[in-house]
């Protein structure tokens, strides 16, 4: 009785029909399983409230020439420095071939806004925050000095001396008007 094959003249047709049925069911089941997993995985992505803070607006009208402020963007400090003519000149005079991470100052600032330097304030060595207060050491190159392992950055935020491998990162930003900077 068990699993007895009946002799069936339409065996061949039956077989193809069965294959189609089995394959379709298995394929749909696989699709269902895949679709069911997605919400679980997706839930691990940043939530809406986190994304809502992924851009930060900063009022820059109060920043004097030569002054730098620290803002918070996506959980990390961002340095906004309004550079002096002198600092810009120094930054642009450097022969970039001599730099550990060659990059032109012009590529690190926005056109016609070259007095503004916006940097992610996280040392590219091991993630410490270089000093950005007026009282902090600016390092040997007039930019920033990371207190952890002594990485010196210049007035364009480029690494000049010390263990850090890269220049300080530039976040995506734009000037929405004369007074407001939008980071992110």
């Amino acid at each position: 009785m068990l699993m007895k094959r009946e002799i069936d003249p339409t065996e061949k047709i039956q077989e193809t029909k069965r294959d189609f049925l089995y394959l379709t069911t298995a394929a749909m089941g696989a699709v269902a399983a895949g679709a069911a997993i997605w919400p679980f995985i997706d839930s691990m992505n940043p939530a809406a409230d986190v994304l809502a803070l992924s851009t930060t607006e900063i009022d820059i009208s109060q920043i004097a020439v030569g002054q730098a402020i620290t803002a918070m963007w996506r959980g990390s400090p961002v340095f906004i420095r309004r550079r002096t003519e002198e600092e810009i000149k120094i930054a642009r005079a450097v022969d970039i071939k001599t730099l550990p991470d060659p990059e032109k100052d012009e590529d690190r600032t926005k056109k016609d806004k070259d007095e503004w330097l916006v940097l992610v304030g996280v040392c590219t060595h091991l993630g410490c925050v270089p000093g950005n207060k007026a009282s902090d050491s600016k390092g040997d190159f007039g930019g920033w000095l990371c207190p952890c392992h002594g990485s010196h950055y210049d007035t364009s935020g480029r690494i000049r001396k010390g263990p850090a491998p890269h220049n300080l990162a530039i976040p995506p930003y734009q000037f929405t008007n004369e007074k407001t900077l939008l980071i992110g």
């Binding site: 919400p39 679980f40 997706d42 839930s43 992505n45 809406a48 409230d49 986190v50």
Partner: peptide
């Protein structure tokens, strides 16, 4: 329920 992706579903 409000902000986590598919959080309401979970």
């Amino acid at each position: 329920m409000r902000d986590v992706n598919h959080g309401w579903l979970l």
